[in-house]
Design a protein around this nucleic acid. Structure first.
Lengths: 233, 233
DNA sequence: AAATTTGCATGTTTTAAAGCATAATTGTAA
DNA sequence: TTACAATTATGCTTTAAAACATGCAAATTT
């Protein structure tokens, strides 16, 4: 099977959501310009201050969007799973990236030049709406995050982070084990706390039988309790 | 002069940015559906959890977009000046508002039903781009805010808030006095701190001759120093 | 297998900011 | 004009979380 037909297969099978919005000339535009990249665990896909050139599409693996802050502190802003798109905001805002993207684990990512995307939006109303919708959802999420990360206490923030992980990556077949395995440091960077406090608070949750922890394997035992802690703050 | 022609005048003079993007049928659609409202100081324009129905356009005055958090603590997310648009994000995200909008001072605001806006976007590529661009800029701003509000110290956050006020509302004719007069509580809500600490830190800045404070009149004496404090954190 | 690094865990100390109390001042309504 | 409420100002106390220190275990490298 040729590279090109493999590509078309991957694209047409995996990009369902956007793909179905496209006309056939647009599909050609994509297959001609789409490139597939493999990133290793922790490899950076793009970095803050870079100029946005591509739309990125996560095909396989997990990707984090984060921002480096003060004293090496990192804040994870959003998590991506297949099939999701990222890296387009800065281009639309006509500014360099304000955040960085890195592979959380070995990942396969497709790229498409943003000028191609721009042309497609110009000629496809549905595609324009797709991005308006995505941007609007993300903006609501970030506005909400501003308040929860600044006002909730450590336990509330960690509970919320765990719920985010559930919503984003779901459970293993047992219906309890989180389908993402991340370092304590990343858990901390997700919930705006130090690594020490992430460890401490995870231990506390385990002691209270809200979760069980076995290395990076986290089992959610009492999701209701978790949501309750998240709400209180 | 009839109400309608007044309206057309107001609209065509003040809505320059969007207006110039419109075709003439669209202009009629607007004048037929556009309503003008007056809000008193501190009056709420819409509230969190409401369903978004209108696009709002600030014609005169100042408006804050904010979110009520824990224990009555309020976080100001964005500030609007004439002529700016707000209230559309939630509609595009197909969800209720996650934040509230209130007049900071006596303000005049125009409203236009979002279904009209939707139709216009469907038929006007430039208008689609206008919203994609606005949403993208706002998302970058919120993502940045997440990090500065969680990681910078009080002085850095206040300095940043003051710079935001400069950028948003500018100076009086003297080139030094901030063209917005807000309660210490609002300064606090803008920079994620308690009212006490906003007062304390403003006093500290005054003592260090970075600003002068006379009631709600804030004069920026040393903007460079302010930017320096904001950067350090 | 030994050595070294990396990540996890937990206790102690320090500190930035919140919380609370109390005046002083200003604005506002009766 | 007085009376009342709201806002601003300042000092003192408390506390949540960071910072720091140390130990242990697992994973990697040599």
């Amino acid at each position: 099977m040729s590279i090109k037909s493999t590509l078309e297969k991957v694209i047409s099978e995996d990009l369902a959501e956007i793909w179905s919005l496209l006309k056939s000339e647009e599909k050609h535009q994509i297959t001609d310009n789409f490139e597939i990249h493999n990133f290793k665990k922790n490899q950076i896909i793009y970095a803050e201050k870079d100029n946005p050139v591509h739309l990125w599409c996560l095909l396989k693996g997990k990707v984090k969007l984060y921002k480096d802050g003060i004293g090496g502190r990192q804040q994870i802003l959003r998590l991506y799973r297949p099939i999701q798109y990222f890296g387009y905001r800065a281009y639309f805002a006509r500014e360099p990236y304000v955040s960085s993207a890195a592979a959380f684990e070995a990942s396969t990512v497709g790229s498409l030049p943003m000028d191609v995307v721009k042309n497609m939006i110009d000629n496809n109303r549905d595609l324009a709406w797709f991005f308006i919708h995505e941007l609007s959802k993300n903006l609501g999420g970030s506005d909400t995050k501003i308040v929860t990360l600044t006002q909730k206490h450590i336990r509330g923030r960690l509970a919320e982070a765990l719920i985010l992980l559930i919503d984003n990556y779901g459970f293993e077949d047992d219906g309890k084990t989180l389908k993402i395995y991340m370092a304590r440091e990343d858990v901390a960077n997700l919930s705006n706390m130090t690594t020490s406090n992430a460890i401490r608070t995870l231990s506390a949750f385990a002691q209270e039988r809200i979760i069980t922890v076995d290395g990076r394997r986290i089992k959610i035992v009492d999701e209701a309790k978790l949501r309750q802690i998240s709400k209180f703050g």
